[in-house]
Structure formats: C-alpha cells, structure tokens
C-alpha cells in the first residue's frame, strides 16, 4: 500500500488558508445589537404671529435677559438704539432688563410690552 506523502510546507499552506477563511467569515459575520439612543418626543408646532407692515412710528422693546451678567451684552442694545435714533428716528426704542435669571419668566414686562409696544427683540445669549 502506497503511503500518502504531504510535504510540511503544504500542510502549513492549508492551515494558513483555513485560518484566513475563518477570520474572513468572523469579520464579515453580521450581528444584531441594541440601540442605546432613546426616542425623543418632538413638540407640536406653534405658528408665528402676524408681522408689522413696517416699524415706522412703532415702539420696539429691546429686552436684555442678562446672559453673562448685567454688562455682558447691554451695550449691543445701546448701539442698536443709537442706530435707530440716527437712521430711523420714527422708531421709538425702549431698553429693558428682564427680571430674574435669564430663563425665568417676566409676565409684568410682557404685559408692559403688550400695552405699550408693537414689537420686541430679546437677547442676547452667547
């Protein structure tokens, strides 16, 4: 009976081929994993109110919410007021500081704006 002789180099090649095929199959195997993200509920849309025909002859309230402190951005409003005074003197500007922390409601001020104003600019975050 003839003995089957396989050279050692061939054994090594076969072993290497099997190893590569196995690694390829492991690397390409698809798995299913769980999603760490959570559905975040969106809020219902609320429409904008109607706009003014123009600012001419109107009163614009400029409200500083105090982000960064009382002096952090107040001069931006002062510069805006100066710009209106110079370029659109028919626009009356009222500069106000909102009461409380920047995120707190200020219904008294909102009522004043409703009674005495026509439009508002609120800021300045950042």
């Amino acid at each position: 009976m003839k003995r089957l002789f396989i050279p050692a180099s061939s054994v090594l090649m076969i072993f290497a081929l099997v190893t590569v095929l196995h690694a390829t199959s492991v690397g390409s195997e698809k798995i299913t994993v769980m999603n760490p993200a959570i559905t975040s509920t969106m809020v219902d849309r609320v429409p904008l109110t109607n706009r003014l025909d123009s600012l001419d002859g109107k009163t614009l309230y400029m409200v500083d919410i105090g982000w960064g402190g009382p002096d952090a951005a107040y001069s931006v409003f002062e510069e805006m007021r100066a710009w209106f005074s110079e370029n659109m003197p028919n626009v009356k500007t009222v500069l106000k500081r909102k009461q409380g922390p920047y995120s707190a409601d200020d219904p008294e001020l909102w009522k004043e704006i409703k009674e005495k104003g026509d439009a508002a600019l609120i800021g300045i975050s950042g």
Partner: peptide, 11 residues
Amino acid sequence: DYQIPTVGAAA
C-alpha cells in the same frame, strides 16, 4: 400669548 412680533438675538 401676547401676539407681539419678536426676534431673538444670540451668538
């Protein structure tokens, strides 16, 4: 709530 046209200003 007050029907005041408003613009927000921020960085």
